[in-house]
């Protein structure tokens, strides 16, 4: 019998939920300010997915770092890796099916899982200039399994239509992604309030589970478009005692995962 954790926080629940999506045969890379995915990758590797290959910072293959530090792209993070991946090479074999899993957050996410991290407002005269797409623009159109996470579930993040499509999700819904010859796409959206997936036909975002203390009404009110809401919405599966212990004591004892909540509120 697996012991369920009695008390845990939202950041821990998000890490555990994401970790459970990774499979032992996955190759996963992480980008900038990605404490939740990095913690999830390490947690998956320490529990159900020992064969998972992590490409730290998209640079250090199968790295074995110390506990998380205040930066997810720091050279000290890819200590003891088996290989350094020159960046330009990564983009030369990214089609081969390796690196098939990618985690993305963005300033705006729409009902079809398209993501914007480029500009808010009109491109030519932006209200807010964001840092840019980094690798998400390519990854979105490369048949990858995309996991979206955000620590700011608000109507400002979840918009009906993104101002700029930095990363292709299901485009205009239905079969519009498939028609361009693009496979896979967004699998799951994990936020500080809930977990969502995509309804298979329309490809619209659908509520899957809510975190403890969160109501369905609250999720809908914090989302800038109508979600598909099935009759039964379970609570998000809680972490186990083992997962919480690993996370708190081994993987992230300094609580770096919580920085995403701070930096998110400091945004703009």
């Amino acid at each position: 019998m697996v012991a369920i954790a009695r008390e845990y926080t939202i950041d821990e629940l998000m890490v555990v939920t994401l970790a459970r999506q990774f499979r032992s045969e996955d190759i996963v890379l992480n980008g900038t300010v990605s404490f939740i995915p990095v913690a999830a990758i390490l947690l998956a590797r320490a529990t159900h997915a020992p064969g998972l290959t992590w490409v730290a910072g998209a640079v250090g293959v199968d790295a074995q770092p110390e506990p998380l530090i205040g930066n997810t792209l720091d050279p000290t993070m890819w200590k003891r890796c088996v290989m350094y991946l020159p960046q330009e090479h990564m983009w030369s074999y990214v089609h081969r099916g390796v690196l098939e899993t990618f985690c993305i957050r963005g300033a705006q996410i729409d009902q079809y899982g398209n993501i914007n991290n480029t500009v808010i407002g009109d491109y030519a005269r932006p209200k807010v200039r964001l840092p840019g797409s980094a690798g998400m623009g390519d990854m979105g159109s490369l048949d990858k399994r995309i996991f979206i996470w955000t620590t700011t579930h608000t109507p400002r993040t979840f918009v009906e239509r993104v101002d700029f499509r930095s990363c292709a999700g299901y485009l205009d819904g239905g079969d519009s992604r498939e028609r361009l010859g693009l496979k896979n796409g967004p699998q799951l959206v994990i936020t500080n309030l809930c977990v969502m997936d995509f309804e298979p036909q329309s490809k619209r975002m659908r509520l899957k589970s809510v975190h403890p203390g969160v109501t369905v009404e609250e999720v809908q009110a914090q989302t800038g478009f109508p979600l598909i809401i099935p009759k039964e919405i379970p609570r998000t599966e809680p972490p186990t005692v083992e997962e919480i212990c690993l996370l708190r004591e081994v993987i992230d004892p300094h609580g770096m995962r919580r920085r995403e909540f701070r930096s998110a509120s400091g945004r703009e």
């Binding site: 300010v33 209200k127 840092p131």
Partner: peptide, 23 residues
């Protein structure tokens, strides 16, 4: 470039953001 940020120091590079928003 594809990205202009400073990791946890700043989510978007400040002078870059200012210059783009001011055209």
């Amino acid at each position: 470039t594809a990205y202009m940020g400073g990791e946890h120091y700043c989510p978007v590079a400040p002078m870059f953001r200012a210059a783009v928003e001011r055209g």
